[in-house]
Computed example of a mutant assay.
Amino acid sequence: MRPRISAFPKCYLEQIAGERSMSVFDWIEMARPLDADGLEMYDGFFTSLEADYLDQVGEAISAAGFLMPMLCCSPDFTNPDADARKRAIEREVAMIRVTHHLGGRGAVCRVLSGQRYPDVHREQGIAWVAQCIEQVLPVAREHGVILGLENHYKDGFWKHPEFAQKQEVFLELLAAIPEREFFGVQYDPSNAIVAGDDPLDLLRHVADRVVSMHASDRYLAEGTTLEELRQSDGTLGYSPDLRHGVTGQGLNDYDAIFSILAGHNYQGWISIEDGMNGLDEMAQSLAFLRRMVAKHFAP
């Protein structure tokens, strides 16, 4: 089975989840013309977690011709406050149930490590995150939901970047959680670039554990080099000189990425994170991904 493609409205994240000038229902209607199989959701999109409200969201997604394969959550499992970590666990558990409600068994619910708090050392952070994920895994198993640990940069509503942003920390954390049926990697090649790492090198390390993927692309502003953007910790961050654009026309080598995934018989979802310059670019990105899937994966 070939990977299927979903769309995520990164361009409208603030409007839907922050200022509330758009609703998730507005986005679903806007997405109708897009050539996608599913719509990825974000936990901040929902104004209620009551069953009646979630039923309305699910019905709107279905009526627009889509599935809901992935739910993007941002648990802060590195918070030095034990009560805050407990609340993060409770929120992730609730989101696993929402993922099942909207996507059924086999849907992916994202997990993150948490923020890179200045006073939280690497060893302690990895221990906390592993403990938190182990506590939510039984709920994932119960509902048949797969947890996807993303190599992330920074949730838009966080103060600090991702604790496990750098590849070496991400891989150490991944190794600390041996579960493979209901836990794996949500791979994002653009986030590897932002981390100052090689997206292909990361993928080669984690390809056998990838359960979902975000597909976007980054462009360097004219006259800029990656080395010029590199910060003291080796990351690039969200520099204004590192820009979003049409997937397949930027820094990521998608032929190589899809070749590696196909070599590991990847059959999960690929979610397009795009539209920062309008839905027309998102449509172009989706068309590119359709061509790449057809090229690298047998029907």
Rank of each mutant, 00 (worst) to 15 (best):
L202A: 13
A176S: 15
V185E: 06
D201P: 02
L242H: 09
A176C: 03
V206H: 02
P199Y: 07
H244D: 09
N191A: 12
R180F: 04
L220P: 05
D201Q: 14
D201M: 08
L242F: 05
A192Y: 01
P178M: 12
A221T: 09
L226D: 07
Q186A: 09
A195N: 00
H244V: 00
F182V: 11
S190C: 15
H214S: 08
G184Q: 04
V185H: 07
G196D: 03
D197Y: 03
Q231A: 06
A215Q: 06
R204M: 13
D188C: 07
L203R: 03
L203T: 00
E181W: 11
E181G: 04
T235V: 06
L226Q: 08
R243F: 05
H205S: 14
Q231G: 03
L229I: 01
L200M: 10
P240G: 08
R180A: 01
R230Y: 06
I193P: 05
G245R: 12
G196N: 05
Y187W: 04
L242K: 12
D188N: 13
A215P: 00
R243L: 13
H205M: 10
D188M: 06
R230W: 06
Y238R: 14
L200H: 15
R218N: 09
D208K: 10
G223K: 13
Y238M: 14
D233T: 06
A176V: 02
P240E: 12
D233M: 12
Q186F: 14
F182S: 11
G196T: 01
D208W: 09
E227T: 01
G196L: 01
S232I: 11
L229M: 01
P178R: 10
H244R: 13
Q186N: 14
R230F: 04
G237I: 11
D201E: 15
R218P: 00
D208S: 13
M213Y: 07
S190K: 01
L200F: 04
T225G: 10
L202N: 13
H205F: 04
S190H: 02
V211F: 08
R218Q: 14
G196H: 05
L226R: 14
M213C: 14
P189H: 07
E179N: 10
A195C: 01
S216G: 09
D201I: 12
E222L: 10
F182Y: 15
D241H: 15
Q231S: 00
P189F: 02
Y187G: 01
A207Y: 07
E227Q: 04
S216Q: 13
P178L: 14
D198W: 10
G237Y: 12
Q231R: 15
F182N: 15
Y187S: 03
D233Y: 07
S239R: 08
